[in-house]
Design a protein around this nucleic acid. Structure first.
Lengths: 189, 189
DNA sequence: GTCTATATGTGGATAGAC
DNA sequence: GTCTATCCACATATAGAC
């Protein structure tokens, strides 16, 4: 139940991040968080004002980590296609879905501007990075000039997010892989 | 609150369908269903064994309707590209998301084989219809022979499902439209 | 068939002791 | 800072009257 060196706040945020990923905001109760974190009720309300506040910290951290991971993946000295491919083929726990994208199906997250903000920012950031790479590819002649970078970036991101949906519906990762391969075949120079 | 000619069962199923779309399975309580349907507690447990049973009826009906709508859209005597385009440009309430796809993010739906089955069947059905159309296009020379129909079908469906995610994250339909246009530009003969 | 009453647990949060 | 006790409302279901 987390390492010894982890502070109570950290344990609470980590437990919340896991539960938000697994069950979403609506499906996550303070009680479940406390049990997973191994702390008492009082600690949670000492460090955070409540469920929303704790979820906010958790979502922000998840967004930061995802953006950092994407940066590591895309900051390479390779062709535009190779970087888009690297993004699409990134190792993923497909059946768990995207820890950020899944929150968009949570009515209470979407209804709360504070909770939606870090979700929006993270997705917009990745879209922006992908668009810049497509633009490079268009400029260098690697991609057809008729491609609109912002649109292709949205298509790439949507294919990944939708791939999770197909995979979870079928209970198998195959559909995700198929969608990605299909897109790569359409993008292939 | 629904027409006079609607039976109690129908009212319950309709109310459940709406709530599942808006709030998902975890976020929908029997109480909320009863209030929306305008019936008492006893009626629900007379016609259905409980929340799961009612949700099952609701999901099945939503799946049937979606498959029928897709059939109407795709049963036209036009080119393969035109039919894929028609599917992608279908009029949608983008910010509400897909009434079937959103259920894949519901942990209690995915964990219950009975509830997941109609979700899986509906998505598999649409994928199959799209794949057959792509196959036609490949056979007729409309699409490049290197395209794998099942993969392209998955890409098309994933772009739509992921488009909902992008749109809901940003709170605007633009990202959905961008993803669709990007895919159409890649598919264009 | 439909209603109201009731039951048990949980959701989300506060109070106050240590 | 952390714990336990307590609070009120809701979630989900059953019982039994009409």
């Amino acid at each position: 139940m987390y390492s010894e060196g982890m502070s109570t706040q950290e344990r609470l945020v980590e437990a919340t991040r896991e539960l938000l990923w697994e069950r979403g905001y609506v499906g996550t109760s303070p009680k479940a968080i406390l049990q997973r974190a191994g702390v008492g009720q009082g600690s949670m309300y000492h460090h955070f004002t409540g469920k929303q506040d704790l979820a906010l910290a958790a979502i922000r951290r998840t967004g930061e980590e995802l953006r950092a991971a994407v940066d590591r993946l895309l900051d390479t000295d390779t062709s535009a296609y190779a970087r888009i491919e690297a993004y699409l083929l990134r190792e993923r726990d497909v059946l768990r879905g995207c820890p950020v994208g899944r929150l968009t199906m949570d009515p209470d997250v979407i209804a709360d501007p504070e909770l939606r903000a870090p979700v929006d920012e993270t997705i917009a950031y990745i879209e922006g990075r992908l668009a810049a790479i497509v633009q490079e590819g268009v400029d260098s002649g690697e991609f057809a000039p008729r491609l609109v970078p912002a649109e292709i970036a949205a298509t790439v991101l949507a294919t990944v997010q939708g791939g999770y949906v197909l995979a979870r519906a079928s209970g198998a990762t195959e559909a995700f892989d198929g969608a990605v391969r299909g897109l790569l075949s359409l993008l292939a120079p």
